[in-house]
Structure formats: structure tokens, C-alpha cells
């Protein structure tokens, strides 16, 4: 069960081209391509004729032709050609999906078209702001999307999983402030007077002690924005080295997710060596998360149905986010 009346990241802009690309989002098969004018199109990736996917087919102008018997569809999903006959069957159409392309991501609306509100696409401007430089990755995680939400809302795991990059024991020793405002849940941790995390310390050219902070904001159901950084002891966060980690989490099915990741920083913007170091270091972080969450998925799939998580205070953000997701899912069922 998925929250469908929502925007999810479907792809990077660079992945949508004149070559049809397949994605499965919330168990819905989708084909993505661009028109000759460059506009992104998303259609259900299943020909109504006999169920063959459209993505192995070819583009004919702005239309896509099924590779099996040549049924052809325009960008709205209307069938415009059936090669074997002149009459186009009434039921020969495919569903089209609203898209918004912004800052390098292509967002798809998987629910009722009339509810698609472009103003609800989250703010991701750091990816295209020249004052910031961004490192990106994308991963397939063989786990349910909720585990990635939980992972980002409870960053105490950094102390144990990411010891060589962003982790330190001081993380779990500091409490959090969880804020719930409507559907948005944030978990904020301030760690005063600590050393910078190993992964950024060289790029930040830091020595000594700083105030470190991270605040994960969950915009359900598929986007988490992490405001992170270090600043001088007792100084405002805005003065510091700032990081925005943009996490587009898109369910594939009940046990698989796409993870679209962008790490934007406002320091060392022209230092290419730093960017290169971060490309490698952040890939390590994501591989460590992937490994942990895939093991967790295995653990959960073998866990008896009536056994629940034993949450602790540090899980306040996790628990609140789950409640919001439960509420949104219930509202959509009505």
C-alpha cells in the first residue's frame, strides 16, 4: 500500500532522454522519455494491446511505438496508430502522469491527476544554485522505503555504521528536538563543542572544536531534507559550513526503493579535489546504509507479525513520521 497522491522523484533529468527509460514506482510501471522539444513525458509502461512494456519500443516523433505490434501513443497516452487496422479500439490508451522537472530531478505524481499541485513539489534549489556545489548518487536499496525514512530521522546510527566518515560517539550522546507541524516531522540535534566529522574536516580545513548540527525534515511520503553543518562554538548556524542533503526516496514495491541523493555544500565550492573526495566518501556512506537497511529488511521479513519495534526516546522522529504516514495512507483509502 502506498500513498499515491504525492510527488516522488522518478529520475534525474539526465536519465530522461530520447531513449525510453523504464521505472517502477509504487508498483506502477512507468516509461519516461522526452519529446523532440525536450519536454519530459511519463506513461504507464504497459501496452493496452497485450501488456507488452512500451519502454523497449521506439520513439516516433513525440510518440512512442510499442515494440511488439506497433501500437503508438502520444504524450497524453492516447493511441494514435494501430498498424494492423484503421480503427483504434476505445480502450487502447495508456495512463499518463503529471511531471515536474526542477533542479535536476524529475518528479512524478502517481495519484489522481486533478489533485496534482505543482506548488507542493519540495524546495530543492541548492542543486542548481551557483553558490552551492552538489555531489549526487542514486542507489537501488532492497528494502522498504520506510526504513530509509527511519534511517534519516534517527541519525544515531552514524555512530556505529559510518565510523570512518560522518560518525562519532558524541552523536548518540546528544538528545534531539522533534517537531511535528501538520504532516512535516523534523528531528534536530545540536552537538556543541565537538570535532568536525572526518569526511568533511579536510574540506572544511578545520581544527579544534565546533558546534555540529543536523536536522532532518521529512516531507512525506518521499522526500527528506537534511540541514547539516558545523559552526563556531556558540555561533549561529547560518554562519557556518552548511550542507543540505536532499533525499528522494521512491518506493518500487514493498521491499525495494530508489534512493536519489544530492549533497550540496556552501564551502570549498571551487575545490574540485574536495568534490572528488566527497563523491567517494559519500558513496561509502550510502553503501554502508544500503548494507545495513537491506539486512534490516531481511530481519523484518522473518520477524513474527505481532512483534513490534522497541522504540526509545531517540526514535521520537521515527515514531511521529510513522504516525503521519499511517494517517495519510488512511486518508487516501477513504
Amino acid at each position: 500500500m502506498y500513498i499515491l497522491n504525492a510527488w516522488y522523484v522518478a529520475a534525474w533529468s539526465t536519465e530522461v532522454s530520447r531513449e525510453p527509460a523504464r521505472r517502477v514506482i509504487c508498483e506502477i510501471p512507468v516509461v519516461l522519455y522526452r519529446t523532440e522539444a525536450g519536454e519530459a513525458v511519463a506513461l504507464e509502461d504497459r501496452c493496452p494491446h497485450r501488456g507488452y512494456p512500451l519502454s523497449p519500443g521506439r520513439l516516433v516523433g513525440d510518440n512512442i511505438e510499442c515494440g511488439y505490434h506497433g501500437f503508438t501513443f502520444d504524450g497524453s497516452g492516447t493511441c494514435v496508430r494501430v498498424p494492423a487496422q484503421d480503427i483504434i479500439p476505445k480502450q487502447a490508451f495508456v495512463r499518463s502522469f503529471p511531471l515536474v522537472e526542477k533542479d535536476g530531478w524529475v518528479w512524478i505524481w502517481t495519484g489522481q491527476k486533478e489533485l496534482a499541485d505543482e506548488s507542493k513539489v519540495p524546495d530543492t534549489h541548492w542543486m542548481s544554485d551557483p553558490e552551492w556545489v552538489t555531489v549526487t548518487h542514486s542507489f537501488h536499496f532492497a528494502c522498504r522505503a520506510e526504513l530509509i525514512h527511519d534511517n534519516l530521522l534517527d541519525l544515531t546510527h552514524e555512530s556505529f555504521i559510518h565510523t570512518s566518515t560522518v560518525g562519532d560517539d558524541y552523536i548518540y550522546k546528544h538528545g534531539i528536538t522533534v517537531e511535528v507541524d501538520g504532516d512535516v516531522v523534523s528531528a534536530d540535534r545540536l552537538m556543541p563543542g565537538v570535532v568536525a566529522p572526518p569526511l568533511y574536516a579536510r574540506t572544511m580545513a578545520t581544527e579544534g572544536l565546533y558546534d555540529r548540527f543536523h536536522c532532518t525534515v521529512f516531507y512525506p511520503p518521499g522526500y527528506l531534507l537534511l540541514h547539516s553543518g558545523i559552526t563556531g562554538e556558540g555561533r549561529p548556524r547560518e554562519e557556518g559550513y552548511l550542507i543540505k542533503v536532499l533525499n528522494g526516496i521512491t518506493p518500487i514495491d514493498a521491499h525495494n526503493s530508489w534512493y536519489y541523493y544530492a549533497f550540496s555544500r556552501n564551502f570549498g565550492v571551487d575545490q574540485h579535489w574536495a568534490t572528488e573526495e566527497l563523491v567517494t566518501g559519500l558513496a561509502t556512506v550510502l553503501e554502508e546504509d544500503k548494507d545495513a537497511l537491506e539486512w534490516q529488511e531481511i530481519g523484518l521479513r522473518s520477524r513474527p507479525y505481532d512483534v513490534r519495534d522497541s522504540l526509545i526516546a531517540q526514535d521520537a522522529g521515527v515514531a511521529k513520521a510513522r504516525k503521519v504516514m499511517e494517517r495519510l495512507l488512511a486518508a487516501e483509502k477513504q
Binding site: G175, I176, T177, V178, E179, V180, D181, G182, A313, Q314, A316, K320, K323, R327
Partner: peptide, 12 residues
């Protein structure tokens, strides 16, 4: 730990 619960987050 601190929780800030905004009024719209209240539930029946």
C-alpha cells in the same frame, strides 16, 4: 529529549 507538537498535528 524535546518534542514540539504543533496544534495541527493533534489528532482525534
Amino acid at each position: 529529549m524535546q518534542l514540539i507538537l504543533r496544534q495541527p498535528a493533534a489528532r482525534d
